[in-house]
Simulated scan of single mutants.
Amino acid sequence: MGKFKNVSEVIETPYISMFIEEGILHVYYKRIENMDLDIAKECVLTRKEFTNNRVYPCLINVIQMKSSTKEARDFFATEGNEGISASALIVNSSAFKMMANFYIMVNRPKNPTRLFTDKASALEWLEQFKK
């Protein structure tokens, strides 16, 4: 935790690690071969418990995630977005960029959502959504 500024607690599960730094929730997905609805629900429940249902802009690093089911994407776009004022998705491959763009265009998340390939740009964009 020493490498993060203003981080009080880091939560680790088999699927994610998350922390709040300078008013932005950081969620890093671990290696997941196929994100299904059950895993998606567990991740969102963990996030809501961790944030005490407070609303945050969210940096979401999905670099290690391999794929997701339609049900998981639908869930993340609707109920799974509760408590998130905006989402910045960090991707690093053209295949995942296509999948994430598909998610944004087809699933239409209910909050502002953008793709980024670098963390600094994502954090800069999320600043406008802090309360």
Results as ranks from 00 to 15, higher is better:
residue 1 M to F: 05
residue 2 G to C: 04
residue 2 G to K: 13
residue 3 K to D: 09
residue 4 F to Y: 14
residue 5 K to I: 09
residue 8 S to V: 08
residue 8 S to R: 14
residue 8 S to H: 06
residue 8 S to K: 15
residue 12 E to S: 13
residue 13 T to Y: 11
residue 13 T to Q: 10
residue 15 Y to Q: 12
residue 16 I to R: 01
residue 18 M to C: 15
residue 18 M to H: 12
residue 19 F to N: 15
residue 19 F to H: 14
residue 20 I to F: 12
residue 20 I to Y: 12
residue 20 I to C: 13
residue 21 E to F: 06
residue 21 E to N: 12
residue 21 E to V: 05
residue 22 E to Y: 13
residue 23 G to S: 10
residue 23 G to F: 14
residue 23 G to D: 13
residue 24 I to D: 10
residue 26 H to A: 07
residue 27 V to T: 10
residue 31 R to G: 05
residue 31 R to I: 11
residue 34 N to W: 04
residue 34 N to M: 12
residue 36 D to V: 01
residue 36 D to T: 03
residue 36 D to I: 00
residue 37 L to T: 02
residue 38 D to T: 07
residue 39 I to M: 02
residue 39 I to T: 05
residue 40 A to V: 03
residue 40 A to C: 03
residue 40 A to Q: 03
residue 41 K to P: 06
residue 43 C to K: 06
residue 43 C to R: 04
residue 44 V to F: 12
residue 45 L to I: 08
residue 47 R to G: 04
residue 47 R to K: 11
residue 47 R to D: 03
residue 49 E to D: 13
residue 49 E to G: 07
residue 52 N to P: 01
residue 54 R to S: 09
residue 54 R to M: 08
residue 54 R to P: 03
residue 54 R to L: 08
residue 56 Y to G: 02
residue 56 Y to N: 01
residue 57 P to C: 11
residue 58 C to N: 05
residue 58 C to Q: 10
residue 59 L to N: 07
residue 59 L to P: 05
residue 60 I to L: 15
residue 60 I to F: 07
residue 60 I to E: 15
residue 61 N to A: 04
residue 63 I to S: 13
residue 64 Q to H: 07
residue 65 M to E: 02
residue 65 M to A: 05
residue 65 M to D: 02
residue 67 S to R: 06
residue 68 S to D: 04
residue 68 S to K: 00
residue 69 T to I: 00
residue 69 T to C: 01
residue 71 E to M: 00
residue 72 A to M: 03
residue 72 A to H: 01
residue 73 R to V: 02
residue 73 R to T: 00
residue 74 D to S: 06
residue 74 D to I: 01
residue 74 D to W: 00
residue 75 F to Q: 00
residue 76 F to W: 03
residue 76 F to D: 03
residue 76 F to S: 00
residue 77 A to V: 00
residue 78 T to K: 04
residue 79 E to Y: 02
residue 80 G to M: 01
residue 81 N to D: 07
residue 81 N to C: 06
residue 81 N to T: 11
residue 82 E to C: 04
residue 83 G to H: 02
residue 84 I to K: 06
residue 86 A to D: 02
residue 87 S to E: 05
residue 88 A to G: 02
residue 89 L to I: 05
residue 91 V to N: 01
residue 92 N to G: 04
residue 93 S to H: 04
residue 95 A to S: 10
residue 96 F to K: 15
residue 96 F to Y: 11
residue 96 F to V: 12
residue 96 F to P: 11
residue 97 K to A: 10
residue 97 K to I: 14
residue 97 K to Q: 11
residue 98 M to Y: 12
residue 99 M to L: 15
residue 100 A to N: 07
residue 101 N to E: 13
residue 102 F to L: 15
residue 102 F to T: 09
residue 104 I to N: 06
residue 105 M to T: 06
residue 106 V to L: 01
residue 106 V to R: 05
residue 107 N to R: 09
residue 108 R to C: 11
residue 109 P to E: 07
residue 110 K to D: 08
residue 110 K to L: 14
residue 114 R to L: 14
residue 114 R to A: 12
residue 115 L to H: 10
residue 116 F to C: 09
residue 116 F to Y: 09
residue 117 T to K: 15
residue 117 T to H: 14
residue 117 T to F: 15
residue 117 T to M: 15
residue 118 D to W: 09
residue 118 D to G: 13
residue 119 K to H: 13
residue 119 K to D: 12
residue 120 A to G: 11
residue 120 A to E: 15
residue 123 L to A: 07
residue 125 W to R: 10
residue 126 L to Y: 09
residue 126 L to D: 06
residue 126 L to E: 06
residue 128 Q to L: 13
residue 128 Q to I: 15
